[in-house]
Simulated scan of single mutants.
Amino acid sequence: MSETRLTEAQYDAITEAAAQWCMRVHEPDCTDREREAFAEWLNADPLHAFEYEAMLDIWDVSEHLQQPLPMAAGVVQKLPVARRKRWQTLAVAAAITLIAAPVAAYSGWQLGWVPSSYQRLQADTQLKTVTLPDGSEVELNLGTQLTFANYKDQRRVTLNKGEAFFKVSHDVTHPFFVRAGEGQVRVTGTQFNVWTYEDQVKVTLLEGSVLVTSNKRLSGEGLRLEPGMQARYKAGDYAPQINQTYANAQDLAWRNGKLVLDNLSLSDALPLINRYLDTPLVLADSATGKLRIGGVFNTQDIDRLVTSLPKVLPVYLSISQNGNPVINGQPQG
């Protein structure tokens, strides 16, 4: 933050500049010279970067909005069907107006343009439990990042990375959506877990029911899960894969700080392990990936699991040119 104490007008000017830069650099016709000017402005003062990060949050929120008919209070006009980026720019402008004008904020809420509340949540090295403004409760695993926005007609969570367990406050008229990867989960009131790693997503349902889609751009409500069911999908999947499961120690042990590997192949175990590592493990070959591992491990000390692998499996560790630890199978004599 800047050490100089700014007047309200000076601070507002920085906020407005951050908003204008946020909208401009997301336009396809933004020139290289403009991007250089933006970089100079961004590096000129830590407060500039701070305010720009806040505008990126608003930009992220705007991606969730549907294109409305009213452009502003008292003005009715249809938006062009094309130019999704143009609509997002308008949404950012509306959200910026929210900051500056309470009357406009109320109009934006009534139209479903802007949320009444917005939160960015993060758990780094400790588990975290948070009660959202709607009364829902969310538990965040280590290394998890998500955002919550409360709109007039829906509640919206974006799980940017990591894993979270949700206890959603029941409200049929105000559905709760969780965006994860390229898909989403729709609920009204239930308990479920969402795990993500790279482009993989796994949804485990404990209570109630949810609708899961693997691609939010496809039509249809998605596939319904009942308690004891699990959905998996990755980028490019047309529909989630559904299977019967149970709320067992393996799926939810993280809530107690544990990672349970129940006789899994290394290829299946690595995504679960790598979630907790700064530098992910890689396999030397597919044959090594077929080796199986089991045990209960502390999520705060997964590095110890890595170093112990040669003691429990016929493998040795090496370092790749990229700096990743590599699991290699021992040569067979």
Rank of each mutant, 00 (worst) to 15 (best):
E51H: 14
V61G: 02
E139H: 10
V76G: 10
V92R: 02
G181A: 02
R186N: 08
S265F: 02
S117C: 06
I242V: 05
H26R: 06
D124M: 15
S267H: 05
N243P: 03
E207F: 08
W109M: 09
N160C: 14
R292E: 08
A9S: 05
E63I: 11
E51N: 10
D153V: 04
P325L: 05
A44C: 06
L225M: 00
L65Y: 07
I99C: 08
Y11H: 15
M23A: 07
L56F: 00
A49H: 10
W195D: 15
L283F: 06
W59P: 04
A17K: 11
E137I: 10
P271T: 11
G329F: 07
E27N: 14
S62A: 15
Q77M: 12
R304W: 11
V260F: 03
H26N: 12
Q77W: 12
L98G: 13
R275L: 00
W21F: 02
T15V: 14
N150Q: 12
D237A: 14
N274I: 04
E8Y: 09
A149D: 03
A94I: 10
P175R: 00
I293Q: 09
Q66I: 12
Q191C: 12
V312F: 03
F166E: 00
I319M: 11
G294W: 03
V306Y: 05
G329T: 13
A18R: 02
E207A: 11
I58A: 12
T188A: 03
F148E: 01
T204P: 02
Q244A: 12
P227V: 04
P280G: 01
A18P: 01
A82R: 12
P325I: 06
T15P: 12
R155T: 04
D124R: 13
F165S: 13
S117F: 03
Y246M: 07
H48L: 04
K311A: 10
G333M: 10
Q321N: 15
D124I: 14
P240A: 05
A105E: 07
Y118L: 14
A100E: 10
Y151S: 04
M55R: 05
Q20H: 08
Q67N: 14
R217Y: 11
E207R: 09
P28Y: 00
R35S: 15
E221C: 07
E8L: 12
T299C: 13
G333W: 13
Y316L: 02
